[in-house]
Write a protein that binds this DNA or RNA. Structure first.
Length: 491
RNA sequence: GCGCCUCUAGCUCAAUUUGGCAGAGCAACGGACUCUUAAUCCGCAGGUUCUGGGUUCGAGUCCCAGGGGGCGUACCA
């Protein structure tokens, strides 16, 4: 921990005056025999009025208390659930103090498993100890916390009082575990690559800049692990993946957090069609495991993730939703005119590929629900993906749209160092022209390609978006424990 | 970035067509109660109405500036 933290923290200026004794007079450990969930599972059918011979030790937080004179009930909550505490003046030592506990106090309780006359499964409080005081009042036991700002800034409170929040983050953990297990089973090796990059790359995004004092060098928080992972394929790691945080210096919204979790994988000898199969199986498998079905409801609308997902080219999707029969063969002026008629702002320097992408993103993609793989992106806007084997100007790239949102981005990887260099240089030209999200030339990556990158398929999945999908949360803040917020001016 | 909305007790919310003593429930505090389930009942206390200006005899309310948050939009996954 923070041993060198300077001045001894004094009493908090805004701490309630009532709490003057600090927190250091409680036990150093507590031996627990059962999680609450173990007891409700084992004794769920206990008949009303029955007292068992089973003595348990449980620990958790006192969430509710119902005093009844010389009798008192409490609700104890731990990570596995809630159970009632049953205390009487006759059998509970320190009964007076027990009934003086605050909601939010942490307790250790030892006693017999029983069911009250009304049939509520309970632990009789034969012994108890205060494990931590709640020095601050808990939110309203019925309404809980609704102020989003407080929920995110004080997640430690939100997690106690909001079942939805606890459930979502438990499920997030299952999703991560499920993704890893499935990939491990398929022979993928999990790796960790640098987060501090001398040259930001692997995605079109503005990076955060930081500085290393000893190296006297600016470094960038990674916007994607892509270029490092493909170096590993060059190095002979045929199936690699990384699940980790990436950082993009962009706006915050219900779908964007400046730091978010990305799953990227690279698979030697595979192409984008293999990646599509892998993706749909991966997502459907995790959904079935975590949600109990591949058919999940998002935002009140069903989406069935069972493979195979529909495949459609970008041109087809545009035609479906705009009626416009356009492609990279369409003369550029005509594409520009099409943008105008659709109300899409364009820029002088944009090529046909960028115009086509804009038409797709603004006029077609918003209508998609999915799941659907939209394939055949213009190569011009896909600087890291390999040219389409049969469609000039296009790349073997696809994005997966699920529940109306981009869930993943994938392609057959560009393996030719000569073409990669010219793509990088085109990006660098865009950057020189003011595009802060364009990529830079990464000489070491080009050298790696020159050593030989085998045919490789790659995939990136926005894990937070997957979590949102499978937890039916509409805001990324509800899928991330501590979302980025403006620093609290009062803190 | 920009636009709209919002901020009242620890929590959840009230406070009449620009304005007239800032309230309730829960939590807390004092008390009653041996089977409660958001326990109930009696009592008591609780406020820089986000901050700073302004208008007014008088501002939670109207105006200006600032701060936090939400939504939309732009960028993106």
């Amino acid at each position: 921990m923070n041993d060198d933290a300077s001045p001894a923290p004094g009493p908090e200026p805004d701490a309630p005056a009532k709490v003057t004794s600090g927190q250091d007079d409680v036990p150093y450990r507590f031996e627990r025999s059962h999680a609450v969930g173990d007891i409700t599972e084992a004794f769920g059918g206990l008949e009303a009025g029955v007292e068992t011979d089973t003595t348990v030790s449980v620990a958790g937080r006192l969430m509710l208390r119902r005093d009844q004179g010389r009798l008192a009930f409490g609700t104890l909550q731990d990570a596995s659930g809630r159970i009632q505490l049953f205390a009487t003046a006759a059998s509970t030592p320190g009964f007076e103090q027990f009934t003086a506990l605050s909601i939010g106090d942490w307790l250790g309780v030892r006693g017999a498993v029983m069911a009250t006359r009304r049939g509520e499964l309970s632990v009789r409080v034969d012994e108890w100890v205060l494990l931590a005081r709640a020095g601050r009042p808990f939110p309203d036991k019925w309404h809980g916390l609704t102020d989003p700002d407080t929920r995110y800034r004080q997640r430690y409170v939100d997690l106690w009082v909001s079942d939805d929040a606890r459930d979502a983050f438990a499920r997030r953990s299952q999703i991560l575990t499920g993704l890893r297990r499935r990939l491990d089973e398929q022979g993928f090796v999990e790796v960790e690559t640098p987060m501090l990059h001398p040259i930001p790359g692997g995605a079109a995004a503005r990076p955060f800049v930081t500085h290393h004092e000893a190296l006297h060098a600016d470094l960038y928080l990674r916007v994607a692990p892509e270029l490092y992972l493909k170096r590993l394929v060059v190095g002979g790691m045929e199936r690699v993946y990384e699940i980790g945080r990436v950082f993009r210096n962009e706006g915050i919204s219900t779908r964007h957090n400046p730091e978010f979790t990305m799953l990227e994988l690279y698979w030697a000898y595979a192409d984008h069609t293999d990646i599509m199969e892998l993706t749909e199986n991966l997502v459907a498998g995790v959904a079935a495991e975590v949600c109990g079905s591949t058919a999940v409801v998002y935002d009140g609308r069903e989406v069935d993730l069972a493979p195979p997902w529909r495949r459609a080219t970008m041109d087809e999707v545009i035609a479906e939703h705009t009626g416009a029969e356009v492609s990279l063969d369409t003369p550029r002026p005509e594409l520009a005119a099409r943008c105008d008629s659709l109300g899409i702002a364009t820029e002088e320097g944009w090529g046909a590929g960028k115009l086509l992408l804009e038409i797709y993103e603004k006029a077609a993609e918003p209508h998609l629900w999915g799941p659907v793989f939209v394939t055949d992106y213009p190569a011009e806007v896909s600087p890291l993906s390999r040219r389409h084997r049969s469609r000039p100007g296009y790349a073997e790239r696809f994005e997966g749209i699920v529940a109306g949102r981009e869930l993943c981005n994938a392609f057959t990887e560009l393996v030719d160092p000569v073409e990669q260099r010219s793509r990088f240089e085109a990006q660098a030209a865009l950057r020189a022209a003011g595009d802060e999200e364009a990529m830079l030339v990464d000489e070491d990556y080009l050298r790696a390609l020159d050593y030989g990158l085998p045919p490789t398929g790659g995939l990136g999945i926005g894990v937070d978006r997957l979590v949102m999908l499978l937890t039916d949360t509409q805001a990324i803040r509800d899928a991330v424990l501590f979302p980025t917020l403006r620093p609290d001016p009062s803190a």
